[in-house]
Design a protein around this nucleic acid. Structure first.
Lengths: 189, 189
DNA sequence: TATTTTAACTAATAACATTAGTTTTATCAA
DNA sequence: TTGATAAAACTAATGTTATTAGTTAAAATA
């Protein structure tokens, strides 16, 4: 019993791949660079995942789980606008701290893949629960989730790509945007 | 006089590259594939731009200009919420029609590049003008622009990556999200 | 201790971007 | 029309990458 290598290896590889992604960008996460970092030869990596697409898929799932683990704690003990702002800040914060891993999250070779969908669904479900405090009726709850996700991803993505050039506090922007959006949704019933 | 090849070549190359991107994805826009499509050898492309990074930069600018050319007409003759919804639908529509070119728009090798910034600034300016109808005071106008851009990019990006799985009308989602956001911004003064 | 599995390895191949140097083709001035 | 010039194609070669095949070493298990 106890196979200390089997389970640990893959996680360790993904951690290194994640560091590589955050530090140099996702496009630098190549089998060559990863192998160099791990002091093994590139072909050896095929024992752990199915080539570069396999790595990117596992990295996407790994990243989605990391993201969920940061969002979930932010949502406990609070509700309503407070909870909404808390997970929003956590989301954007994650994208800032882990730009490469966040990018990997959206770059799965096949986004329709069951495992990837499942990891992403946890985050969607979390958003749904936070929005339940607003008692939105019918389809409005679903539209609201789409809006929230659009804002969070769009904001993170644009910030990451240097899209916001104005000298204007980013956290304040986020708070105003989220607050405005949810207020508008409430008025719209 | 009249050098019908000099100017036309580059545009023609970008058109073919754009078709390649839209049809097979941006990652398939390689010098090898592009050269094959143009019936020339890959090294010949270096006479037109500085390698793959050069192509991606030019494709980004080309795409931003295309996008602007679709947004601008949508905004004329209308104002207020009507104009806002018009450019929003045009934006998302462009991302749907030209998924590869839209992606290229955000994938410039150096987003800080002056030419890229300039092409993007036209679109930001257009958003600013449309939002001016709401007479937002002080920084609120700037926050609003950031919010609008986040929504439009986030929505397009998530839709493109199959992020919205629910059987729920996408255009209706967009309309509700944009309307809610701008209403919330107005209330927040 | 013997077997089996895991994970490393070497060697080789194909696709790609890129550089250097050359040739063809087209433009334009005399 | 012709000769000079510039643009844009070419061939050849190199280095990096992912990938496959086949092999070996090491660890876990029976």
């Amino acid at each position: 019993m106890a196979r200390p290598k089997v389970g640990l290896e893959l996680t360790e590889i993904l951690e290194v791949a994640g560091e590589l992604a955050d530090q140099y960008g996702l496009q630098e996460v190549t089998l060559a660079n990863l192998a160099k970092e791990l002091n093994i030869r590139p072909p050896s990596l095929y024992n752990h995942f199915d080539g570069l697409p396999g790595l990117r898929k596992k990295l996407a799932i790994y990243g989605l789980n990391l993201l969920y683990d940061e969002l979930a704690p932010a949502a406990i003990g609070v509700s309503g606008a407070e909870a909404l702002l808390a997970i929003s800040k956590a989301y954007v914060g994650f994208a800032r701290t882990h730009p490469g891993i966040y990018e990997a999250t959206l770059m799965a070779p096949d986004p329709e893949d069951v495992d990837v969908q499942q990891a992403g669904a946890k985050i969607v479900d979390l958003s749904v629960r936070v929005l339940q405090a607003y008692k939105l009726e019918g389809d409005m709850a679903l539209h609201a989730v789409r809006g929230l996700r659009s804002i969070l991803h769009g904001f993170s993505s644009l910030e990451q790509r240097g899209g916001f050039k104005m000298a204007l506090d980013l956290d304040k922007s986020l708070e105003i945007i989220i607050t405005a959006f949810i207020e508008g949704i409430r008025k719209g019933r």
